[in-house]
Simulated assay, not measured.
Amino acid sequence: MHRDKDHDHGNRVVTETGNSPDTTVPIVVYTLYLAGVVTGGLTALIGVVIAYVYRGKGPYWLDEHYRYQIRTFWLALLYFAVSGLLTLVMIGFVTWLLAVVWLVVRCVKGLKGLQEKRVPDNVETWLF
Rank of each mutant, 00 (worst) to 15 (best):
Y33S: 02
W126M: 14
L75I: 13
L34T: 02
E124T: 07
V28P: 00
G47V: 04
V29W: 01
R3L: 14
L127Y: 12
D63Q: 06
L75R: 12
I50D: 08
G18S: 03
V53K: 07
V14Q: 05
K57F: 00
T31L: 13
T87Q: 10
T15Y: 00
V29H: 00
G110V: 02
K109C: 04
F73K: 06
L98M: 11
R55C: 02
I70H: 04
T24M: 13
R118E: 06
D121E: 14
E116P: 02
M90L: 15
T17E: 07
G40D: 03
I27V: 14
V108F: 09
T125E: 06
E124H: 12
L98C: 08
N19G: 13
V29S: 01
T125S: 13
G47P: 00
V82L: 11
K57E: 08
L42S: 08
V38L: 14
Y52M: 08
F93L: 08
P120V: 04
I27K: 15
M90Q: 09
L127N: 12
V37T: 10
P59E: 15
I27R: 15
R67W: 03
F73W: 10
D8H: 14
P26L: 05
I46N: 06
R106L: 04
N122H: 12
L32G: 08
C107V: 06
D4E: 15
W96E: 11
V53C: 00
N122Q: 10
I46T: 10
A76V: 03
S20D: 14
L85R: 04
A35D: 00
